[in-house]
Every structure is written in structure tokens, then in C-alpha cells.
């Protein structure tokens, strides 16, 4: 690689070497991912070529296969990613939001092959377990993190990093073996911040539960049918590629997670008492148990 400056940024236990010839961009990168710099041997490498500034935008992200490579394009950047070689080239302006977007997309592609995903969810560690709070914009993800007591560790208020806890040598193998069936999940902190404008801690914990948020007059935690949990999960997983094989993998991963973890609807009134409910739930529900058995839906079929 010809780039002069290289740093290894490790998010979710996936170390990626980020290289550039631009000192200015490199300094930006170091500041932005200060708490996620790593001395690990990189699994992947991205080379950044800085081009003329164009405005950052969330629109028109296009991720598609081109032979052995993925093409990732948005108004403010374009990238080629060779998944087999684990290398890529990014052309973007020196904009931290573009950089975040590129890394989110790259991690979503990497995670899809490992049974994990990025999820629109806040997450935090409480008493040794991670709790995820998912929902559409305005559902209360950032509010939950703002209400967290001081002993709770913030992982992210916007994009949660979820992957199964299985040995590397079996995680990409057949999905129905004993190791997969007993897989637990771990949530990692990410530097991808939402309204809170504060990166998460660079740490991780086994996931105790996933809550889908709704605001209401009082705090209430309720069971949710498995099908609704999978449906909501699929809606909130960050994925950009219109690729049937990867969609199938994500669907399988969503089903695995729903089968492995307690998934609940959390209706909450936005004051700190909601965290007492979360804490109580964690103590009452040992990790790794799911309570979906016996739930059925009545409709014959619906989209």
C-alpha cells in the first residue's frame, strides 16, 4: 500500500487498517476514532483517497456487487471493496460523516457473513449485561441513554453492533449445528453517535435482552410474538445491499437472535425509573433464555 499514514481501527472486534496520504484526513480519523484505535493485526485494509469536497448526504446510497467486488456509492463517496481479499479503496472528501458511513457499510457487509449485524438501536451495559433499545427515529433511543444512571456504560445511542459469541472456526459453518443453536450474542460499543453526539465506550458485554421501544404513560415490559420480533428486527437492521444471498443471511441471523434472546416491547415514560424496570428484568431473566414458546398468530398470511 502506498499510503503514508495508517491506523488500525477496531470496532466490534474487527480490526481494519485505514490508510491515507492526506495528513489532514489522517488527523481527523485519529481524533474521531480515538477510543477505537488498536494494536491488533488488521483483518482488512481500506485505502482512502481524498477528493474535492462534496456535501455529505444520507440519500442514494447504492451498494451492489461488481464481479468479486462490492461497489459502494453515495453522493459524497465511492468505494470498491474486495471481500475475498479483504481490501478496498475509498474516494471521499475529508468529511467525518462520510467516513462513518463507509465504515458502517463495510462492517455491515463483514458482519452479515458472520451471523451479526448493525442495528438501529441504543445499547448500554448494566450489571454486566448489554441491553439493546431499538426503534424508529423518535422512539426514544437517545432518551434511554440520557436517562441511564451513572453505573450504566453507554455502547451507543444510535447504531448497535451485534455478533454471536462463537468460536471463529465454527461461526461461518453450517447454521444448525450445536454451536450455533447455543450461540449467545455480544454487543459492542461503536463510535457511531446519534443525537447524543457522544461515541460509545470501546467495550462489550453479552446481550441480556433486546427491547423495542414505545413511549407511553407508564413503564411496561411485555412479551412479543417471535414473528413480530423478527419483523421488527429486520426493519431495524442496517443493510444497504440489495443482494438476495445477504438478505437470506440476515434473515437467518435475525431468527437465530430471536430464538436465543429475550425480546420484549418496552413501553416507557421518559424518566429515570425506566432503568429500574430494565435492571429488574435483567435480574429476573437469566441470560440466554427466550420466552416465545406457545405464541401463535391467527392470520393465514400477510405481507
Amino acid at each position: 500500500m502506498s499510503s503514508e499514514h495508517t491506523a488500525c481501527v477496531e470496532i466490534g472486534g474487527v480490526p481494519i487498517a485505514l490508510s491515507t496520504t492526506s495528513y489532514h484526513f489522517f488527523a481527523l480519523l485519529l481524533r474521531r476514532y480515538e477510543n477505537f484505535l488498536s494494536a491488533s493485526v488488521p483483518e482488512f485494509a481500506l485505502d482512502f483517497e481524498i477528493v474535492d469536497a462534496r456535501p455529505a448526504t444520507d440519500e442514494d446510497t447504492c451498494v451492489r456487487r461488481d464481479g468479486e467486488e462490492w461497489l459502494i456509492e453515495r453522493g459524497d463517496f465511492s468505494a470498491r471493496w474486495n471481500a475475498r481479499e479483504g481490501t478496498g479503496l475509498v474516494r471521499q472528501n475529508a468529511n467525518p460523516y462520510s467516513l462513518d458511513a463507509v465504515l458502517r457499510i463495510l462492517h455491515s457487509l463483514i458482519l452479515a457473513g458472520r451471523g451479526g449485524f448493525l442495528l438501529h438501536a441504543a445499547s448500554a451495559i448494566c450489571e454486566g449485561q448489554a441491553y439493546l433499545f431499538s426503534g424508529i427515529s423518535g422512539a426514544g433511543k437517545t432518551t434511554m441513554t440520557r436517562l441511564a444512571p451513572s453505573d450504566v456504560t453507554l455502547l451507543t445511542d444510535e447504531i448497535s453492533y451485534v455478533r454471536p459469541e462463537v468460536r471463529d472456526e465454527v461461526r461461518d459453518e453450517v447454521r444448525h449445528d450445536a454451536a450455533r443453536a447455543s450461540a449467545a450474542y455480544r454487543a459492542f460499543g461503536t463510535p457511531f453517535a446519534g443525537e447524543l453526539a457522544k461515541p460509545g465506550e470501546n467495550t462489550s458485554a453479552p446481550i441480556g435482552a433486546l427491547f423495542f421501544l414505545e413511549k407511553g404513560p407508564q413503564n411496561r415490559i411485555e412479551p412479543m410474538p417471535a414473528s413480530e420480533a423478527v419483523r421488527r428486527l429486520m426493519r431495524n437492521i442496517l443493510f444497504f445491499a440489495e443482494d438476495p444471498a445477504l438478505v437470506e443471511k440476515l434473515f437467518a441471523s435475525a431468527c437465530e437472535l430471536v430464538a436465543s434472546l429475550p425480546i420484549r416491547r418496552l413501553t416507557f415514560y421518559p424518566d429515570p425509573r425506566v432503568w429500574e424496570e430494565v435492571r429488574r428484568f435483567g435480574r429476573d431473566h437469566p441470560r440466554g433464555r427466550s420466552l416465545h414458546d406457545g405464541v401463535k398468530q391467527e392470520k393465514l398470511a400477510h405481507a
Binding site: 410474538p225 417471535a226 429486520m234 416465545h292 398468530q297
Partner: peptide, 12 residues
């Protein structure tokens, strides 16, 4: 996939 007794189908 069948989960908790329910068949779920996704059109990829």
C-alpha cells in the same frame, strides 16, 4: 424458518 411454532418466510 420455523420459530416458536410459526413459519416465517422472507422473499429475499
Amino acid at each position: 424458518r420455523i420459530l416458536a411454532g410459526e413459519m416465517m418466510i422472507m422473499n429475499s
